[in-house]
Amino acid sequence: MTSRLSRNPRSDAVDNRERILEAARALFATEGLNVPLREVARRAEVGPATLYRHFPTKEILATEAFTDQMRRCHLAVDEGLADPDPWRGLCSVIERLCELHARDRGFTAAFVSTFPKAVNFTADRDYALKAIAELSARAKDTGKLRPDFVLDDLILMLMANNGIQAASPAAQVAASRRFAALVIQAFQGTPDHAPLPPVARLALVAPGLTR
């Protein structure tokens, strides 16, 4: 019994780890990956040494912090692949990825970057991209996806989506949905200008272009 208990993490260590992850998720979501680890430690109310003991590098911390986002990314891609209509499946993936990334700026930065030490995250991202490549190939075969589409266009889409600056989190998501609709129309093999989602109030709008 004593031997078994000695292998269990101390409750304060577990609490510290969870507070660090919670702080990292909140800061990465709003500020991106440029947040200093000392700021994460301050938000979590732990010392820098405690943070580094649990997460020696920012890459390791980001990998752990974005586990749920990557799981939802995988789910979106897998459900898109399972759709018997590959174009509809691809559209669903685009919409869901744009919204997922609009809710978390740090996740976009991690997704489009290379973290050499975060092996698991890199493998997960590569899986998602390969699955999307397969789905896009199927959509091209139907003629509904433009033949010159390449996977880099998806990365470009995510980077542009990450640049949206809206007045509130809700407006951020609304703006992302409209952007996704525009992207889908741009990716179509044949024009089909369906109505766009409502306009969201953005943080910066040029005079005379609000209506």
Score class of each variant (00 low, 15 high):
Gln69Phe: 06
Leu97Asp: 05
Leu182Tyr: 04
Arg103Thr: 09
Arg146Lys: 13
Ile20Cys: 12
Leu182Arg: 13
Leu97Lys: 04
Leu145Ser: 05
Arg38Gln: 09
His54Asp: 08
Ala206Thr: 11
Ala139Tyr: 00
Tyr52Gln: 09
Pro9Gly: 12
Thr63Tyr: 01
Arg43Gly: 01
Thr108Gly: 02
His54Val: 01
Cys73Val: 11
Ala139Leu: 05
Leu154Arg: 00
Val46Met: 04
Arg105Gln: 11
Pro197Gln: 07
Ala133His: 11
Glu31Gly: 06
Leu5Ile: 04
Glu39Ser: 12
Ile155Leu: 15
Ala175Arg: 09
His74Ala: 14
Asp126Arg: 11
Ala175Trp: 03
Gly163Pro: 03
Thr2Ser: 12
Arg71Glu: 14
Ala23Leu: 13
Ala110Cys: 10
Met70Trp: 11
Gly32Tyr: 11
Leu90Met: 13
Asp141Pro: 00
Pro116Gln: 07
Arg53Lys: 12
Thr30Ser: 15
Phe66Thr: 06
Ala171Glu: 15
Ser136Arg: 02
Arg43Pro: 06
Arg38His: 08
Arg125Pro: 03
Leu196Thr: 08
Arg201Asn: 09
Val46Pro: 10
Leu204Pro: 05
Gly80Ile: 04
Ile60Val: 14
Leu145Gly: 07
Tyr127Thr: 04
Phe149Gly: 04
Ser6Ala: 12
Pro84Ala: 04
Leu61Val: 10
Phe179His: 09
Asp192Trp: 01
Leu135Val: 01
Ala65Lys: 04
Thr50Ser: 14
Glu95Pro: 02
Glu22Cys: 08
Arg105Lys: 14
Gly47Ile: 09
Ala166Glu: 07
Leu154Phe: 14
Phe187Cys: 01
Met70Tyr: 08
Arg17Met: 12
Leu204His: 14
Ala102Tyr: 03
Phe179Asp: 07
Val93Thr: 05
Ala180Phe: 04
Ile60Arg: 12
Ile20Ser: 01
Leu5Pro: 12
Gln185Trp: 06
Ala180Leu: 03
Arg71Val: 05
His74Glu: 10
Arg10Leu: 15
Asp85Ile: 00
Arg7Leu: 15
Leu135Phe: 00
Ile132His: 03
Ala128Leu: 02
Ala200Phe: 02
Ala180Tyr: 05
Glu22Ile: 09
Trp87Met: 10
Thr142Met: 11
Leu151Ile: 15
Pro56Thr: 11
Gly189Arg: 02
Leu202Lys: 03
Leu33Met: 15
Phe179Ser: 03
Leu90Pro: 00
Ile20Gly: 02
Ala23Val: 05
Val205Cys: 08
Ile184Ser: 01
Arg103Glu: 14
Ala203His: 11
Phe107Glu: 00
Leu51Phe: 10
Asn34Cys: 13
Ala82Asp: 13
Asp148Pro: 10
Leu21Gln: 05
Phe55Tyr: 14
Arg71His: 11
Leu202Asn: 02
Gln188Met: 15
Ala170Asn: 06
Phe115Arg: 04
Pro116Arg: 06
Ala133Gly: 09
Asp15Pro: 07
Pro56Ile: 15
Leu151Thr: 07
Arg88Ile: 00
Thr142Gly: 11
Arg38Trp: 03
Cys91Asn: 04
Asp15Thr: 12
Asn16Leu: 02
Pro84Thr: 10
Ala65Pro: 02
Ala76Pro: 13
Leu61Ser: 09
Thr30Cys: 08
Leu154Ile: 13
Phe115Glu: 05
Leu209Gln: 09
Leu129Cys: 02
Val40Pro: 03
Thr30Leu: 13
Val14Trp: 09
Leu158Cys: 06
